[in-house]
């Protein structure tokens, strides 16, 4: 199928932990599908969602795909920007230099601006 490129901007907001449910993977699948259809798409990791950005993830023992490796492949899918809730990242001691994908760390005011400047929000 083909989807019209409309110029709208969509933000996928990920608020859940990467291995606690299937929801997080669903969010990344949605983001990659948006990008594959050439829609303008950004991702925001908010709250507990910042745990996606933990360095050196190893999920072999729980039998699911490694989210860190999936994130590292996102630039191949033309996902425009990755944003990170800086306060939550600090709470979990996730450092800007050590994440599986480079992200822009935002404070509360910057997150509010980001949410308001997108046409659609997909909240996971």
């Amino acid at each position: 199928m083909s989807v019209t490129v409309t110029g709208k901007k969509t933000l996928v907001v990920i608020r859940h932990t990467p291995y606690g449910s299937s929801l997080a993977r669903a969010a990344l699948d949605a983001a990659m599908a948006m990008a594959a259809f050439e829609q303008a798409i950004d991702i925001l990791f908010l709250g507990d969602g910042v745990l996606h950005l933990m360095p050196d993830q190893d999920s072999a023992a729980i039998g699911v795909n490694n989210v860190g490796k999936l994130l590292a492949s996102l630039p191949l899918y033309d996902i425009d920007s990755v944003y990170v809730d800086a306060a939550s990242a600090a709470k979990y001691r996730i450092a800007t230099y050590d994440t599986p994908i480079a992200g822009q760390f935002l404070d509360q005011a910057q997150i509010q601006q980001l949410l308001s400047r997108n046409d659609h929000l997909l909240g996971f």
């Binding site: 989807v3 019209t4 409309t6 699948d29 599908a33 948006m34 259809f37 829609q39 659609h120 997909l122």
Partner: peptide, 17 residues
């Protein structure tokens, strides 16, 4: 497939989750 979600997002004024 997920293309149906992409299409719905692109062609709707509001997408509500």
């Amino acid at each position: 497939g997920l293309g149906e979600l992409v299409d719905a997002t692109a062609n709707s004024d509001r997408l509500v989750t």
